[in-house]
Design a protein around this nucleic acid. Structure first.
Lengths: 230, 230
DNA sequence: TATATAAATAACCAGATAGTTATGTGTGGT
DNA sequence: ACCACACATAACTATCTGGTTATTTATATA
């Protein structure tokens, strides 16, 4: 075994490192901060390149952490991906819970929900990309997740009570399926944003130009309101 | 150089191959057929694993072709991906052109268009996955495509003339944006189908069950009709 | 039949990549 | 003061992967 040789080499490299460290930055020993940096870097890298395209070395580099730390804290590339995904869902769940639609009249509340969904996607495009990637993998990393049932219950409850209020007020149609409505509210924003690159080529215009974004949001609100209101 | 050695090895392996070929199937010399097999295999592999996740060796194996043939006919992995993408767009373009909406009254024509889009996505899920992948890559492989402008012109024309007929007949609202409508028709189907895996987990039901599919299509038709009709 | 050429093949390679090993080091509890 | 332990690091390796080379084989044409 090359044990002795390794020791010698390491001693040598250590000496070199002290004089001219390869990794420019050296972080204080702070487990939590390191994990956060790794998660943030991983989110970007996975969103940008997908699970297969993401490079563990790149994540380590961007996180200004050693690669070994990734395996120490998260076990494997896939486990890290799972964690990033779960965190992304937890984030949107938290954001949704801060929405207080009860104070608003039903129609305004509905518009607010559409607006919120749209803006969240715009502000967090990595969320869309991560979800896309996970669906590419047939969602194998999400079976047994504890966050997902919570987020769905939350959203369904919100929309169901909103629909009930609107019905009672006589301005919403009866018997609208809350799940289908939820899906449609997500769909009209999600599709436009995830497919903005091919979309911009197909329709020969910049999908992210502010005028275009404004038009799209207006169209989406109109679509949803017409679907729900009498 | 190991030239001589190589020759010796190859002679040996050739002999072995004749008695017990490694690749079970050996295809007749048919350039066109080989290319088709490669394209079909590549479509599946890219759709299943993405550009980065797809393996050239796997494509060769599934195509029952030699890997060298892929490089001979298509140049590189990325070029093959581009070709697969372009072909996928060409396919949907051809399918759309066979739609004859002019004979139908405007409302029926609109419903037919929604139905067609939905069914095409259901029948060709690889198309959705390929488009998702390309958007993950920010559509770098599609700049300078010749198929895309054609497909968009085709679809916009179709929807614009449909909208005009409906307006004239007094049943469609005035001033509906054909592009936005196009996007929405695609979105309400596309989102449901590409996100069927996370969707099935979130809402704890099988998105591909026939009852669910029927409900979704009905909801989508309703959504679009309400958006367009007076 | 002879031969030019396109089609097909297996072995090979250099670089990359996920994951590991061996080792060093700062800090808090005693 | 010290030492156990969690945090951090660089170098290493087995394997994989896109792409290439050297060569054989079938077919069309003269």
């Amino acid at each position: 075994m090359p044990k002795v040789l390794n020791v010698a080499k390491r001693a040598g490299s250590q000496a070199r490192k002290t004089s001219a460290g390869k990794t420019g930055t050296s972080h204080a020993r702070d487990a939590e901060a390191t994990q956060k940096r790794i998660l943030a870097a991983a989110k970007k890298e996975f969103a940008m390149n997908g699970l297969a395209g993401a490079r563990v070395d790149t994540i380590a580099e961007k996180a200004e952490a050693n690669k070994r730390m990734i395996y120490h804290y998260f076990g494997s590339k896939e486990a890290l991906f799972e964690r990033v995904l779960e965190d992304a869902y937890a984030d949107i769940c938290r954001a949704e819970q801060s929405l207080k639609l009860d104070h608003l009249d039903p129609k305004t509340a509905l518009e607010t929900l559409v607006r919120f969904t749209w803006q969240y996607y715009l502000d967090n495009p990595e969320f869309l990309t991560l979800v896309n990637n996970e669906n590419l993998q047939k969602a194998v990393h999400l079976h047994g997740s504890k966050v997902l049932p919570v987020i769905s219950r939350n959203r369904l409850d919100m929309v169901e009570s909103l629909l009930a209020r609107g019905e009672k007020a006589g301005i919403f149609r009866r018997g609208i399926d809350a799940m289908q409505l939820n899906i449609t509210i997500a769909a009209v924003g999600y599709y436009y944003i995830t497919n903005r690159f091919t979309g911009s080529i197909i329709f020969d215009c910049d999908f992210m130009a502010s005028g275009m974004l404004r038009k799209r949001l207006a169209f989406n609100i109109d679509t949803i309101v017409r679907t729900v209101c009498k």
